[in-house]
Amino acid sequence: MPRLSAWFIRASLIYLLMGFTLGALLLANNGVEFMPSAWALLPAHVEFTLVGWIVQLALGTAYWILPRHTNGPARGSLALGWASFGLFNLGILLAASSGLLPGTFQLAGRILQMLAAGLLAVLFWPRVKAYGL
């Protein structure tokens, strides 16, 4: 797989671990209370598992297996690809700060995620094509 996919997928596995750890803390604490402030972790749990793990794994895999270009760089601009990776992951960390940092941080996180999504849409769009093109 290309290096960028490996980074997306490795990041998604790290988010899986972080998201499951937060989820396990929340669940255990709901059953046997040992950490009254655990509820503050819920937004980060949701962001890490849903966006960090599931969505990011799909992005890394799509970048890897969608049909490649026949001319020029096989998967489009590398610079755009890496920019999307950076923006997306910074976006996840900021968006997960709900309850810990002021709301402008989460807003910034969502904006970064949307920019990353836009870049990825630009990269993926021409690779979604019929056979022989």
Binding site: F20, G23, A24, V32
Partner: peptide, 29 residues
């Protein structure tokens, strides 16, 4: 409540075992 705590531990083990087994298969080429 302890059933929930056990469930939390089992799910965490599942995630960790999957990541350990998968990490070395994420290879650049």
């Amino acid at each position: 409540g302890w059933l929930m705590a056990a469930s939390a531990l089992l799910l965490l083990i599942a995630g960790t075992a999957f990541v350990i087994n998968t990490w070395g298969r994420v290879k650049e080429k």
